[in-house]
Nucleic acid binder design. Structure first.
Lengths: 326, 326
DNA sequence: CTGTTAGCGCCTTCAT
DNA sequence: ATGAAGGCGCTAACAG
């Protein structure tokens, strides 16, 4: 029922090959016949079938995007960056959530394989050899987004997490803080977060850094944990591993009748829109969330088109945005 | 190079038709040969090519998801709901952002058509006949998510927006408010928002409802607008069309040295996580964002599998969550 | 510049 | 219960 390339060919009185050529610009076609073909296409309302095209060409122009959870602000922003660039290069994205579970992740890589995606953009908390193997087996170009691969086996786009941790602590130190806390998720939950903590500890040069673990770092559950800690330990500055945790920290301080930044200074990671929706507005180590997506997608297009790539491990810049919480 | 169904057939010493049968369970196969086929599949690490499958069967098991912007909390949450259910029914989602621009939307519907998606989940601010026509032409089952179609031409999942507007105002009235404001986007920006305003006005029964327009409803730009309005008009209660606007309202009030809820009570729409990340925590008309996605995806699966559907226009319940801002 | 002809990998009758 | 064979709609040589 639907109109095919044959119908167009017949209508334009040319062969299907010629139609294919004008559609794909894959060879020179006489101006005159090209016009006839275009008219036929318009007249019949023809749309090339991307599935058939994919089967014949072995390129689907869709890329798989595997993330822990789109509903997280950070991720959603990144996905938006991905999609914008994908769209620009005429790709579509197949989006899946892994909840950061290794078995699901491996499964999803398999799904992407079956769907014949041209490439994969991958984000996870902890990269294991299982996923690496799955990528290997599927033979699909991959770029890691905001994900640490210490061994750099896979192209990736990231910031220098170690340094960002150092910078955060350094900032508080410069502000005159002496008793500093680092609020983060449980160890092993996120390699990125762990890396930042290392950087932070390095900067302390032997002085005590109070590490406050809050499970998975959700606002609701973290708030009481942070508050309990602050009631036992007098801190004058904290760095939080995310905006959400920073918010929890600010509220914990305020709940105790203290004032941010007078009594406790707060600097958080990320800089989602949340950061300016708090009072006081939060000082942050801003992460280029949108760019993580945009740049990694761009890198992937280079990989797919065999464009020259000068760096397979691109490090984006983070920067401190100073606001009222410090 | 990659292993095909033929390779499996040869390995198992059966015809490819049989392999297809055990893969799809599309006909009875002797237990013994089925076992041989399964072993061959495992041994060769065979993965059916979904593209070829799609071409032959005319079903791709992927559905298109068109939304204004994934990076908006509301949308991201909904998409998560969609993906969860899609995954459950063995579908994948092709996600695109339209920025609510009609021409882009029409374009994207065309893209979905080319990609041969089995169905489309659609969300937009204003549904025009152009999109309706595009759906018509593409002949793809569609379900609207959290999108108003007054004429109910297309299956949809929504709340009763008119009533929710009434309920919000009613709530403030019951709380003893007399001078009520309704903070929302510009007229025509969102049919859903406009509908709520109508409901709100209806409940006022002729008494004045202060309507405060804030463009596209972003926090940063809305805050000063709200504040300016409040400085000129003494209100004692406001309903905000989104959490973001509610937050802006609370901060505007606080900036003026007044106290929420003592001086001004605030109730907002949505109930994203933002609502409990403010002080005071926000009273809201909670929307089932996740369910908008989950239920519409489920409805779509019914449409695709010709399951009986008792209601093509499903109305989800909204409810008031009372917190400290009122 | 244009037409002819193989596939791409799988599903699906139709036989057997 | 299984095999043979014809598409699905398009790309990509290969001729001319």
């Amino acid at each position: 029922m639907p109109v095919t390339i044959y119908d167009v060919a017949r209508e334009a009185k040319v062969s299907m090959a010629t139609v294919s050529r004008v559609i794909n610009g894959t060879a020179v076609v006489k101006e005159d016949t090209k016009k006839r073909v275009l008219e036929a296409i318009a007249k019949l309302g023809y749309r090339p079938n991307a599935v058939a095209r994919g089967l014949a060409s072995k390129r689907t122009r869709t890329i798989g995007v595997i993330v822990p959870d789109v509903s997280a602000a950070f991720v959603a922003e990144m996905v938006r960056g991905i999609e914008d660039i994908a769209n620009m290069y005429d790709y579509n994205i197949l989006l899946v959530n892994s909840d950061a579970q290794v078995d699901r992740e491996v499964n999803l890589i398999g799904t992407m394989w079956e769907k014949q995606v041209d490439g994969i953009l991958y984000m996870t908390n902890v990269l294991t050899s299982k996923e690496i193997d799955a990528f290997e087996e599927a033979q699909i170009p991959v770029v890691l987004c905001a994900t640490e691969d210490p061994e750099r086996r896979i192209p990736s786009v990231n910031i220098d997490n170690y340094r960002s941790g150092r910078d955060a602590v350094n900032f508080l130190l410069q502000k005159g803080c002496h008793r500093i806390g680092f609020i983060t998720m449980d160890e092993g939950f996120s390699v990125v977060a762990d890396r930042r903590l290392q950087g932070a500890q390095n900067r302390m040069r032997g002085q005590e850094l109070h590490v406050i673990r809050t499970g998975r770092g959700r606002y609701e559950t973290s708030l009481p944990i942070i508050r309990a800690y602050l009631e036992e330990h007098h801190l004058d500055g904290v760095v939080a591993a995310s905006d959400e945790l920073g918010l929890a920290a600010i509220h914990a301080v305020q709940d105790m009748g203290m004032v941010v930044p007078r009594d406790v200074k707060v600097i958080a990671f990320d800089n989602t829109r949340l950061a300016v929706m708090v009072r006081p507005e939060m000082t942050v180590i801003a992460q280029p969330m949108y760019d993580f997506g945009a740049v990694s997608m761009r890198l992937l297009t280079k990989l797919l088109q065999d464009e020259p790539v000068d760096n397979y491990t691109v490090i984006l810049q983070h920067n401190i945005v100073e606001r009222a919480s410090s």
